[in-house]
Write a protein that binds this DNA or RNA. Structure first.
Lengths: 232, 232, 232, 232
DNA sequence: AATGAATGAGTGTTCATTCAT
DNA sequence: CATGAATGAACACTCATTCAT
């Protein structure tokens, strides 16, 4: 994670928590997958994201994947297990940018100003969303209905990310770059703005009407001024 | 809409677009509903919001409502019609604060500063969300899966609100209270912040840890500074 | 139970344990059954007894009953519940001849000799088996595979019958009509002989080659001599 | 078969019907079995006897046997063939005690009294049941559902045994040791008593409460007196 | 207006069996 | 000989919807 904008897999030169390595390894078992299994997952992602989990049928997935219905259940005990096998790994990837041991050092070395940090995060997550949009959509729709998802998210993701993010915020508050309001509140305001950007980009506005560079600039300036220490 | 914080129904002393009146009337047919029908709707809201539309069964709704399975279909031709009867009226209510003919006049008369306007909107929508949380949840989950919902939302709601909202933004930009960036972008940043507030309040944070007054203040100040005209 | 050979329902002039009445009542809810439900039960009995429970499919039962497959599950939550609804009541009927309060009195009044008692029991159970043969067959095949059946049988049937039967045996032993060996052993030898008779009659021998009167006589004489007190 | 209580394999010094030899040979192909095949048969016996044939799945058997699902079908074309390969040999063993050419001679030489003969048979079959209990259970449960089993049993077993058994009965009737009633009826009464003993021993009574010696004595005395020629 | 029995298409899942490796 | 991925028919069961009462 020399650069937040780089893919996690490419940053093995940096200290990574060993448990993350484990998680990533588990995730990357993609290679042991059968051809048919890969097709099943692809079909499932498409259909789940289009119709929702409960609204999709395994027979439809099998058909789109070009396999027999039984084949799905050879690889996933239940339809739900198929869902989780798609969505759970995403959570690991979600925390990737923060999955670094010496977070403060990274901040100091690579991101001296809030602006640089925010821009890195924004661009990085924008890229991430572009790449994994359908899975993210599935995830966001299903999380209210599946306890396991919710718990896994809270435990392994939210806590992990929040801790590091608060650290970053306090780091910049200490440096006089951010106003001294509660870190969770700062966090909320930053995240709202970035997620608002992502949603607008991927759900609401047709690509043709979207000037990404400019919108990123506006958003970051909005956050920077919104959270700048008040003068006088 | 003398005060945005007042209930729409209470503002009949103000000029209301006639089509809105129609919509509200349609919505208020609640009174013609039989006891059983009301129980069906209540049960449906609970179950839909808990399990999602596709994950709920009409028999479960009937059971929770204490009616026979057939009774649901006496009032609603299909399960989907039941969903729409719940969700569609909400959209009307959503646009209520903007459903005023002479919007600029209202702004000038009641909300001379951006802050006043933002605070009114925020408090008002917070109240709205508190009241209609389950239905909003249903709405947000189902909108990607139902063309009718999406279209109705775009046509009768989004457009209507956007137009008025842009007008308000330009009004305050003209008055030098807001930075001169594209109205849609300003809109996005404002709405992101407010929705982020609502989501944090209703989905993420336990009530005990939430100081509403403060969070509202932080949010409004964030927006105000974020969108303040840059000095020099 | 003035006469063991009479149907239980016909003996209301005799004291019957109240719990038995309850059981019989529950069982006789046949009257509240739909036409279709009765047909389902009939079809299920036929098919279960022909192919065994696990070897029968609900679709086959539905077809033979002339109903839609869903109809079965409207009346019985699961296939197993259908099985139990068929088999469980049989157990109650099985104990009917012993379901009398003052068993010793009945013995003294109606069956002064072992022979009379044995003959009554034999004829009565032969009649019972003739009537309920398919259900008995189902019961005997399924009891090893269903804990509920086993437990219900042990608790409500075996114990109930054994107690009374032992009483009868000791009654006749006291009167010098039976050899003084342990009641359970006597019981085993009697029951083996009678069940052997039933099985031979209903499973092994074609009706044409069977002289029922004679076989009953042989069997009862066999038991009487086998259990007669040894002379000197 | 010098002694009925001895294992069949140990009696090769006695004249054996050649067809039996063939059957035993077929059965003893156990030695040509691979390790895996033996494990499959063992697993199948356990699972079939626990859940019944129709209630067991080949995948479960494969799992318990520690082999791949396909391996079963390398050795047995179908699930049913596996069943038959387990159950059919048992039938051969069942008739073993009677599989002797010169049956009457054996009776005269080794079992001069009915009591000796009955005791030998009883002890021998009790031992047999103890050894092969699970397979016997499978056999008894499946015989009503499989024509092949039924026919094989009738043709090669029942007839074979019956013939010899009737011969034995008539032999003892001729000697004045048994009452002169039809041989099939005598047979039925004897077999009922012995099977009743076996069932009580292996299915109903916990070992702790069972005094085998005594129960055998009671049973044999019961049969002897039950079938003793009536005096005057 | 309300019921609840009935439907039959559809659900997720299991099954015995096949076959390329 | 052994594997295990793949199959597709069958399975028990659920569903939204209909309709006679």
């Amino acid at each position: 994670m020399r650069r937040l904008t780089e893919e996690v897999n490419a940053v093995s030169d940096i200290a990574i928590d060993p448990w993350l390595k484990e998680l990533l390894r588990l995730n990357d078992e993609e290679e042991k997958m059968t051809d048919k299994q890969i097709k099943i997952v692809q079909a499932a992602v498409e259909i789940f994201s289009e119709k929702g989990f409960a609204g999709s049928s395994t027979s439809e997935i099998a058909q789109k994947a070009g396999v027999a219905e039984g084949t799905i259940f050879r690889h996933y005990k239940t339809k739900k297990e198929l869902l989780l096998s798609i969505v759970a790994p995403m959570m690991t990837k979600l925390i990737a940018p923060f999955a670094v041991k010496d977070f403060t050092k990274v901040l100091e070395a690579d991101y001296p100003t809030v602006e640089q940090f925010l821009r890195a995060i924004t661009v990085n997550r924008l890229e991430f969303a572009r790449k994994h949009f359908p899975v993210i959509k599935i995830f966001m729709h299903e999380i209210p209905f599946h306890k396991e998802l919710r718990e896994q998210f809270k435990e392994t993701v939210a806590d992990m990310v929040l801790e590091k993010a608060y650290k970053a915020i306090r780091h910049f508050q200490g440096g006089g770059q951010l106003i001294e309001i509660p870190a969770p509140t700062s966090m909320r305001l930053i995240v709202s703005s970035i997620i608002g950007l992502l949603i607008t980009r991927f759900l609401l506005v047709p690509e043709s009407e979207w000037d990404e560079e400019k919108e990123i600039d506006y958003t970051i300036n909005f956050i920077l001024h919104g959270l700048a220490p008040r003068k006088s």
